[in-house]
Design a binder for these strands. Structure first.
Lengths: 341, 341
DNA sequence: CTCTGGCACTCTTCGAGTACAAGTGCTAAT
DNA sequence: ATTAGCACTTGTACTCGAAGAGTGCCAGAG
């Protein structure tokens, strides 16, 4: 009753099933892998694995397929993270060159990850709760309209249009911007509300109504910049692997568009020793994702923006080895670029 | 051989088919609509319609379904744009209140349109070829890094990180920003390349290498801001109507993610007298969209940013009446908000 | 105690055959 | 121009049976 062979069998079942998409039987197993025992022996092992709930048979007379638990053990005990191919490395390097602003960076990353894994890739905008205000700017758009621009230490730029209380000249606008900028400089974006009183008291009475409006705008910007967002790519890949996901790709797409779900899931997931977070099937604790697995990794954690993740969503029947390696490599790569920038 | 009845029959076929998703036969037709003739008469009419290529029979013994051409005539001659319901109007009004910056505005619009039509909605970022530079700003991020920010007359803000040639103090940076801003103010974004020589000559020699880098960054920003983008929402709706689109929803998603395709299609489409552009099936001249129809309308055309469109993509078997009305209403609504803002 | 060969059993898949329903096209009559 | 009737075509649903795959279990060997 060699315990290691059981694992070998599980591994073989997972690999074959991932490869062929069909339930795998005992005979095929001994043939494809060189287990030096007879099918009957394997059958015994399979019976045990089934008792443990690691594999299951769709019908009495069909081969076995891994259960969520089976995948889980496979991932935990067996899979070795596969190194990247040269082509993949090259793709990442070209990414570096096209690195533009912060947002574009994330966008390119997620697209590349989708291409590498042939799956849906997602990336979480970093929670910038520790980010600080670096600069506030105001640009006049018309007599009563102005654009408030807030630049954060993370390099993110947010803007918002406001309607001022009075017509205000460029000079006064400049003065307002200076007060805002100097007064709020280095202030954490999570320190709300803003000291509106101090701000208004620092300018001439005639400007105060407008200053209040501007402060309000800045506050709104900060608030909305604390909300996490998710960028997604490769939804077409979902359809490609539709055979695995049954007819249920609709609800999956919905769950993905409903960013909140994914966001909560990502933040809940904890990294294992390999620096990866994986949820398989029911572990996602979300009904429409019951047939999917999420592989994620944290990135940029050393820059103070902690907890931001990136990853892929695919059918539970996925090639965990390469997916895990791609996700991890991507996370490291992005972390490096961000810390350099 | 009443010609108007033929149209009536076509209309009935389209409506029934859109409603039931099943080929419609002569008997059902006379029953559901109160045509005061016998099925046999209808059969004659249908034979004519089939000759004209407006309808087709999937099998010899099945009812008829409209062809692309049939939908086309239906849309051109028959459909009356349905007015919006109160609920729809209300949804649009709440949208107004959540109006934030320019990008968020478009994003909300496209989501709402997706919800209203239960289809995939797309919106084209306005081609800002006529937009002008309103302001250029530089914010120091670290000793050698700075963020270049360009604000356009349309209210769009783009930024880009640059690495400077030398360590430059805040004062000098401010000076550089002022030169850039005043020199480039009101310059059309399509006027490239920038007069780099003039720019560098306006600052002290020690700053010139950095000025060159900054000018280059601005140029890059302008270039990439001229490229149109597409925002999309409601891809989950695609899956919902998957039954209509056969197994081919994969390629469709791909085509949609491949923004270039859609972008070209949208710009090519010309508005009809009702202010709508519609392409049905093969008219999209794109293989993977052969089973879809695109309904679009121009928005914001009076603000100088011309040619930007918004619309929906759905199965050819769609409710053209309500789709058309939703798209047109949305376009008008957005135009109004943009021209007010 | 582990492994193996054999064998009966179960269950899905696939094809052929058949009956049925839907719907047409045509012809002759009004 | 319209209608009624009828023969004809064709997809759909269902049943039946054979084939194939794979298991579980038992009895025997190492």
């Amino acid at each position: 009753m060699s315990d290691t062979r059981r694992l070998q069998v599980l591994r073989a079942i997972v690999e074959d099933y991932v490869h062929t998409r069909e339930p795998v039987g005992s005979r095929a197993l001994v043939e494809r892998h060189d287990l030096e025992v007879s099918p009957a022996t394997i059958r015994n092992d399979m019976a045990h694995l089934e008792e443990e709930g690691l594999i299951a048979a769709p019908h009495t007379s069909a081969g076995r397929i891994p259960t969520d638990l089976g995948y889980r053990r496979f991932v935990d005990k067996i899979t070795e993270v596969r190194p990247l191919t040269a082509a993949e490395r090259r793709a990442m390097d070209t990414l570096l060159e096209t690195a533009d602003d912060h947002d574009a960076m994330l966008e390119h990353t997620v697209r590349l990850l989708a291409m590498l894994t042939n799956q849906v890739a997602v990336i979480q905008h970093p929670q910038r709760s520790t980010a600080k205000i670096r600069h506030v700017d105001i640009v006049s758009m018309s007599s009563h309209k102005a654009l408030v621009i807030v630049i954060l230490s993370s390099g993110k730029v947010d803007q918002r249009m406001v309607t001022l209380a009075d017509a205000i000249g460029d000079d006064s606008l400049h003065r307002l911007a200076q007060v805002l900028s100097s007064e709020l400089h280095q202030r954490s974006i999570s320190a709300l509300p803003l000291p509106t009183d101090t701000l208004t008291s620092r300018v001439e009475p005639v400007l105060r109504p407008s200053m209040a409006i501007l402060a309000q705008a800045v506050e709104t910007i900060l608030e909305s910049s604390r909300v996490d967002r998710i960028i997604m790519a490769g939804t077409a890949n979902l359809a490609r692997s539709g055979r695995d996901l049954g007819p249920s790709i609709g609800p999956i797409l919905e769950a993905l568009e409903e960013q909140v779900v994914l966001l909560r899931l990502l933040t809940e997931m904890e990294q294992d020793r390999r620096g990866l977070s994986i949820r398989i099937g029911h572990e996602t604790s979300h009904d429409s994702l019951i047939e999917t697995a999420v592989v994620a990794a944290e990135y940029g954690s050393h820059t103070g923006a902690e907890g931001a993740k990136l990853g892929v969503v695919g059918p539970t029947r996925m090639d965990y080895g390469s997916t895990m390696s791609a996700v991890r490599a991507m996370a490291r790569y992005l972390s490096r670029i961000l810390s350099e920038g």
